[in-house]
Simulated assay, not measured.
Amino acid sequence: MGNVRYYDVLIIGAGPIGIACALECKKANLSYVVLEKGTLVNSLYNYPLDMTFFSTSEKLEIDDIPFMSVNPKPKRIEALEYYRRVATGNNLHIRLFEKVLSVEKNEGVFTILSEKTTYKATHLIVATGFYDIPKLLNVSGENLPKVSHYYKEAHFYTMQKVIVVGASNSAVDAALEIWRKGGEVTMVVRGKGIGDRVKYWVKPDIENRIAEGSIKAYFESELEEIKENEVTISTQKGKVTLPNNYVIALTGYRPNFEFLEKLGVKLSKDGKYYPTYNEQTMETNLPGLYLAGVICGGMDTHLWFIENSVIHAKQIVNHIVSKNI
């Protein structure tokens, strides 16, 4: 055990909120380390290439460090640059591409085994977000290579027949971008219309494209079966079979509840899987274990986002410091 590293705080996840927690730990003179299984702000990196944030740049700032963007609402590439500069400019202790394999707590100390080494920490912060596990459709053919639960850019789908499942911001953006790059787009939407939380400057665009017939949409419908060259949709008027090249199922994502349960965090039994934590301190039912960011919302992943959960970092570190006074 000679290579075990000891810290006051170990943070899992190097997204914007994990970075904010690291900054607070540094300011409080706490020894800390951040472990991230992917690249820096891994979820943002995997967003669509040309994505525009709903929030303005100042609301995405960490610790009053200015976020300068060309337009009021920044794009993905600007956010990547901003959070990278925050992390590197403050010399934060972040270890990338180092997945956490297991966590155990004994006698008030967490032992964290990663892919590369073993750590011990008095406090643990989980800021892992929710973008890693897609909500599956659970239909036949979902495992075919032509099916994806993530969307990167439109060019790949030029001159292809594409089904986009969902009516959230990501689904609407994908449908519009693919259509504008020459793809034949059909949307399959469980609800009666485009989602209420779709960006207000985008919603009229998609609704007009549907109204004019440029993009086909089946509302109150669900994808029933996916085959190599076609899909079957269950609609209000019966089943419809369409020729198809690709399916992009953008039906949302969920936190890693299994990981939380292994840690000992209690989850609600109502299907929402809300984790148990103190809203003032962000400490869970397991002393010394804290949650930060969107992971606090259970299945309601829209409750927390960057601009309203950055405060979690200060709440957590203030509580940790108060315990040591």
Rank of each mutant, 00 (worst) to 15 (best):
F156R: 14
N138T: 10
C296N: 07
Y6I: 13
V9K: 01
P255I: 11
I11R: 01
R209P: 08
G298Q: 04
M299E: 11
T39R: 15
Y119M: 08
F53S: 12
V126F: 08
E228I: 13
P145F: 09
V198L: 11
K73I: 09
L286K: 13
V165H: 07
Y218V: 01
D132G: 12
H149Y: 14
G288H: 05
E307R: 13
F53T: 12
P255M: 12
L80G: 00
Y246P: 01
C21N: 13
L267R: 06
N244I: 12
Y150M: 13
V41R: 02
K227A: 05
N245Q: 08
N71I: 13
N324K: 14
L30H: 03
V4F: 12
A87C: 04
N46E: 12
G182D: 03
P287C: 04
A217H: 06
I11S: 01
Y47D: 09
I77L: 11
V4L: 11
F53E: 12
A87L: 04
K237D: 08
D132W: 11
I295M: 03
L23E: 04
R180C: 08
V202D: 14
I210W: 03
E98Q: 02
I295R: 00
Q315W: 01
F67S: 06
K181A: 13
T235S: 04
L286F: 08
V9R: 00
I17H: 03
L92Y: 02
L49R: 15
N324D: 10
F130K: 13
N90Q: 07
K161Y: 02
C21W: 00
M187D: 06
L250I: 07
G13H: 00
V165R: 04
N256Q: 03
N42T: 11
N3S: 12
K161H: 10
K181Y: 14
N308M: 09
K135T: 14
L289Q: 02
L137F: 02
G193V: 11
E104A: 11
N138F: 12
D132L: 11
S55L: 11
D132Q: 07
I210F: 06
P287T: 02
V165L: 02
K314R: 10
G183E: 04
Y45D: 12
M68K: 15
A14N: 02
Y45M: 09
I248V: 10
L124V: 08
T241P: 00
E81H: 09
L96K: 05
I112Q: 00
V202P: 11
S309W: 12
